[in-house]
């Protein structure tokens, strides 16, 4: 079996592999959505269709020993960082083979072999946590960095402002990426936020900031590379706003009927898969036919994964009582 780390390492310097992973995410989300619709997945799901370039830009630029604090919109970043479709889908279906043993669910993925901290379902929670991880790296004098990935809506919560301010005054090696997909739940950004360009919020923390096209993996990589260089050389944090769009509804069965007519269509012209395909074809790295067969293969592979995972074992009852704490007597 390929490990998460191997899957991660396969991405570096390999645009074709990154594209293939984007296709994997896209098809994975479709399957997840179908499984949810048929009742095979409990609770909720938050798809990241349309946001594949951002997650791949992150995973193919950060090192595997850097850490990422992300959110309930977890499948895409998980797969991008290297988690296998089996371990992610198994978690979403509550199987013992899931990356959290089936006790987490769709909103909570974790794999420390590729730096994915447990994803949080509380808005903004990962922002100060990432700052804290960066504090550890600073004190331990490693060259690791931490990255927090969160939504546009999260910039209205206290944790965002407190986390950024702290990171700025302590010059922590942390990167804050705001995935501005225009919506927080059912509310379009202008209903909840007085500005549309969220990266300027870093101004008041005297923190370097930038806005970039989150639908284009090259743009993500290049912006992120600057921020990484700054963070690894003691230059402190950066706020990056990636402009994206949530192609799907917010969660579960949301049809996103509150969107203005035509908005989705406009953004679909910038579909990160299309953008990447064009680029790869232009560079003679792949042909249209190869793309089609790659997609077909991916669908059949993922269909097989879904079939297998459906029959995977459920966690034992003891899993419910495990990993809660360590009895004090064994602590030092």
């Amino acid at each position: 079996m390929t490990t998460s780390l191997e899957r991660r390492n396969s991405l570096y310097g390999n645009d074709l592999a990154c594209y293939e992973r984007m296709v994997e995410i896209r098809e994975f989300e479709k399957i997840t959505n179908a499984l949810f619709a048929e009742g095979s997945i409990r609770g909720t799901t938050h798809l990241a269709v349309g946001q594949e370039a951002l997650t791949l830009g992150i995973s193919s630029t950060l090192k595997p020993n850097d850490v990422v604090a992300a959110t309930y919109r977890s499948h895409a970043i998980g797969l991008a960082l290297g988690l296998s479709p089996e371990s992610v889908l198994a978690e979403i279906m509550g199987k013992a083979t899931g990356c959290c043993g089936g006790v987490g669910g769709s909103m909570h993925l974790c794999d420390t072999t590729v730096g994915l901290l447990p994803t949080s379902a509380i808005i903004g929670a990962g922002i100060p946590v990432a700052a804290g991880a960066a504090l550890a790296f600073q004190v331990q004098k490693t060259d690791q960095i931490a990255l927090a990935l969160f939504g546009d809506g999260a910039t209205n919560i206290g944790a965002f402002h407190e986390g950024l301010n702290l990171a700025a005054i302590w010059k922590l090696p942390v990167i804050f990426i705001c995935d501005n997909n225009v919506y927080g739940e059912y509310s379009r950004i202008e209903k909840t936020t007085p500005i549309e360009d969220l990266h300027i919020r870093a101004e008041s923390y005297a923190m370097p900031h930038m806005s970039l096209d989150g639908m284009d993996i090259h743009a993500v990589r290049s912006g992120l590379t600057d921020a990484i260089n700054r963070a690894r050389t003691g230059g402190g944090p950066t706020l990056i706003e990636a402009k994206t769009y949530r192609f799907s509804g917010h969660s579960r069965a949301d049809q996103a009927l509150y969107r203005p007519e035509g908005e989705l269509k406009e953004w679909q012209k910038k579909d990160p898969l299309l953008v990447t395909e064009k680029d790869l074809i232009k560079r003679n790295l792949i042909t249209r036919n190869e793309i089609e067969s790659m997609k077909e293969n991916m669908v059949s592979e993922l269909t097989a994964v879904a079939k297998k995972v459906a029959n995977d074992p459920e966690p034992e009852l003891s899993a419910m009582f495990s990993n809660i704490w360590t009895p004090s007597k064994v602590a030092i």
Partner: peptide, 16 residues
């Protein structure tokens, strides 16, 4: 309920 976080898995959660 026991002194545990609430598990996601349906079988486990039904015992919570």
């Amino acid at each position: 309920a026991p002194d545990v976080p609430i598990p996601f898995n349906g079988g486990l959660e039904s015992r919570y």
